[in-house]
Computed example of a mutant assay.
Amino acid sequence: MSEITPDLVRHLGVLARIRLSDEEVARLTGQLDAIVDNIAKVSEVATPDVRATSHPIALQNVFRPDVVGDMLTASQVLQNAPDAADDRFRVTAILGEEQ
């Protein structure tokens, strides 16, 4: 039994402020009806004993551990900088004086 009718699709279009042609209404009626049918099928098998998941296969973190390594000194970092002052990069101001 079809829950989605062309009138309902037109009404949804009005609510969304989308102008739909007759061809679009016909196409969307079929597509939305198929979506509603598929959701109903999933609802039939989604019982309380089935745990909700976001992915069918268990995922695990594949990142390496965060380990502190050798670090550059401020002078090493700034040695090739075009301009530096007080152990910082000096750049041209891009914001107005109000900042």
Rank of each mutant, 00 (worst) to 15 (best):
A74C: 03
A85G: 05
A93V: 04
L15C: 09
T47P: 01
L32G: 02
S21E: 06
E24H: 10
D33N: 15
G30A: 12
R64D: 07
V36C: 07
S43P: 00
L12D: 00
S2L: 02
A58L: 13
M1I: 09
E98R: 15
D22C: 04
V14E: 14
A40H: 07
V36H: 08
L95N: 13
A26E: 14
P56I: 10
K41W: 07
G69N: 05
H11S: 14
V45D: 05
R64E: 09
S21T: 15
Q76A: 12
S54I: 12
L15P: 00
A34G: 07
R64W: 09
L72C: 04
M1H: 12
L20N: 01
L78V: 06
V14S: 11
V50E: 02
I57Q: 09
G30I: 01
T73C: 02
R90P: 00
Q31A: 13
Q79T: 08
S75E: 15
N61L: 06
T5D: 03
T47N: 06
M1W: 01
R88D: 08
L15N: 10
V67N: 01
L15I: 09
S75L: 03
T73F: 01
D87V: 04
D87W: 03
G96R: 15
M71T: 14
E3W: 03
A46L: 11
E98F: 11
Q60G: 11
